[in-house]
Nucleic acid binder design. Structure first.
Lengths: 342, 342
DNA sequence: AAAAAACAGGCAAACGTTTGCGTGAAAAGT
DNA sequence: ACTTTTCACGCAAACGTTTGCCTGTTTTTT
């Protein structure tokens, strides 16, 4: 009952049967007689036998584990995604190995390598901001380890991914503001190096065109997402000849910085200037001066879908080691969510 | 270069040496001649050999993996802790297996069992709210799997843990308010069933006594942490004969609910009523009406210490399978943090 | 009643690596 | 020149489980 865990061998010896019989009995293999099956089961229970997962993993070449590599565990978006991943993996009897890249490409590469060596059955990755090479992903493909990318997708062909379609949300955001009567709408976007910036911009432009409004590029300014730079960006917009009465910002934090700055200039946030942003952090519902709406990206859903896809892939692989399979490309639609009235 | 990973065997065959030689060569074992060592290393590099972790784990009975079981991954506190755990594990070349109990005892028990079977070297646990039995932890002890509890500690003797001392923070909180001139200080505490509630209350009382003020039990009210119940609690305090001018609340959310309610009653949050709470969520720094200070519990630090202790334990075990060891009981001091000026 | 089929279980290899022990050959000691 | 030591490496077991194939016994078939 104590010390070392019971093994199939010990059970076999005590019962005077072979290990294979015990193994089969515990798996309810049909070729084992019902009486021996029961004897084995009884003794196994009594001895508190539990299969040694490492031995099984080794034997089968499968670990029933999926690896997850993300930039930063403590970010709300990712922790929600991981939570979903763990939940869905658990339901299908998989376990989850995590690691964070801290947005460092070198570390990401190391982690991929480590995950491969620890023989995870598949990998879920949200790539680091700095990642510019993709050889480590090719390597996974060579070793037949399925990968599903989520949220931050590398620019590669023939990959599985789930991402969030920013466009719908962006269009909704602009429509929302137009509908509220705003005619000059500014945008404080993120750095051009981020793909997300491009998408937001696209949405903005599309919405304008769709509504037959002229699109003024000078109403879009970029910032590096810092407090300082946000102020500058806002100042630029406020000095614009067609001073905007509403602004779409890259994310909630940028909105908050901008709002703080605007207020310090005596701008009336209820009347003169409204903000809409991305992320939909729970906290904006608690605030007095916050974006009036924010584009939700559904991290939980994204994590869930990504995990589902990966697990499907793992099942498929057992049945058919096909190479010419289709690729999952799932887009979850972002959605504008109005802040709760305070 | 493709398909199946290279193995030590293949290297051995190609080089016409034994597997043991290859193994030893790659480990730079001194009994291997320098020339063969180099030959082996060279071929291994060329073939892209990487040791099969599952085989090693199986062979050595060690996985170099630590398991982490927490109630909820998406909670800020826990995600910060996990982030720290992963960081420190990574530094020492361990990987991290996670699972969330969702505060469900039955699931927690299952998870512990699963972790044991997958042969994690050690376990880090923050126990579920509902957990009332502790047999699953005893089991780990029997199988010699070290466990370090953190944040939520079970009432057991002879365990390793790191927790946060709420008392210091509580005392600081009250002192802070007293120093600001408040003489009637209320408290909206959590449900009595939570150990944390008791600690907060203790701190409150101690601070009052230390300052030679009389302690009025009717100034402490409980709530179940919901918005609704918080309102009731606040109403009770406001109707008190010695109406408090400051209130300590169980956590930031309770403060925010209370503040919202107070404002709807026309109470001046700058003059008439001040709040201090626990948790120190980043968001309070962005808010206009927020607790003036909050007690920080350093989740990152807690996670880090817990992981450090566990890893130390794992190292020790290799050297000395001593039984009569000491138990790590680390308390990180909570600390009152003033909100940033807005 | 003999042949075929079904049943119940055993044997042994295999997964990749580590490691205690053994063994020739070369180097050192006398 | 002969024994002893050192060196460099090979042999084989072991870790726990799964699984293809074989074998002996019972049951069924005709």
């Amino acid at each position: 009952m104590t010390g070392k865990p019971a093994t199939i061998k010990e059970i076999a010896k005590i019962l005077n049967v072979s290990v294979s019989t015990v193994s089969r009995a515990l798996h309810k293999h049909p070729t084992i007689g019902v009486t021996t099956q029961q004897k084995v089961q009884a003794l196994a229970d009594k001895m508190g036998y539990e299969p040694n997962q490492t031995a099984i993993s080794f034997q089968k070449g499968k670990t029933y584990t999926i690896g997850v590599i993300i930039p930063e565990l403590s970010e709300a978006f990712f922790s929600a995604a991981i939570s979903a991943i763990e939940d869905t993996a658990y339901k299908r009897n998989y376990t989850v190995l995590i690691a964070q890249s801290h947005d460092d490409e070198a570390k990401e590469i190391q982690l991929v390598e480590k995950m491969k060596n620890s023989r995870v059955d598949g990998l879920l990755i949200s790539v680091a901001k700095t990642t510019s090479g993709f050889a480590h992903f090719d390597m996974l493909k060579r070793f037949n380890i399925p990968v599903v990318f989520f949220d931050r997708i590398p620019p590669l062909k023939n990959i599985h991914y789930v991402a969030c379609n920013m466009e719908t949300g962006s269009i909704e955001a602009v429509n929302y503001l137009l509908q509220k009567g705003h005619r000059s709408i500014g945008m404080i976007n993120g750095p051009a190096t981020l793909a997300a910036s491009g998408e937001r911009k696209e949405g903005y432009i599309k919405a304008m065109i769709k509504n037959r409004l002229k699109f003024d590029p000078s109403l879009i300014v970029s910032c590096d997402l810092t407090d300082q730079d946000t102020r500058t960006a806002l100042d630029n917009l406020l000095a614009h000849k067609r001073r905007p009465t509403a602004i779409v910002t890259f994310n909630d934090y940028v909105s908050l910085y901008a709002i703080k700055h605007a207020r310090s200039q005596g701008i009336d946030l209820d009347k003169d200037l409204q903000f809409v942003s991305y992320a939909n952090l729970p906290m904006i519902n608690y605030m007095d001066y916050a974006p009036v709406a924010s584009v939700e990206q559904f991290p939980y859903l994204q994590g869930q879908k990504a995990a589902d896809i990966l697990l499907d892939l793992l099942l498929r692989k057992v049945q058919s080691p096909d190479e010419l399979q289709a690729y999952y490309n799932v887009m979850v639609e972002s959605q504008l969510v109005e802040s709760k009235k305070k």
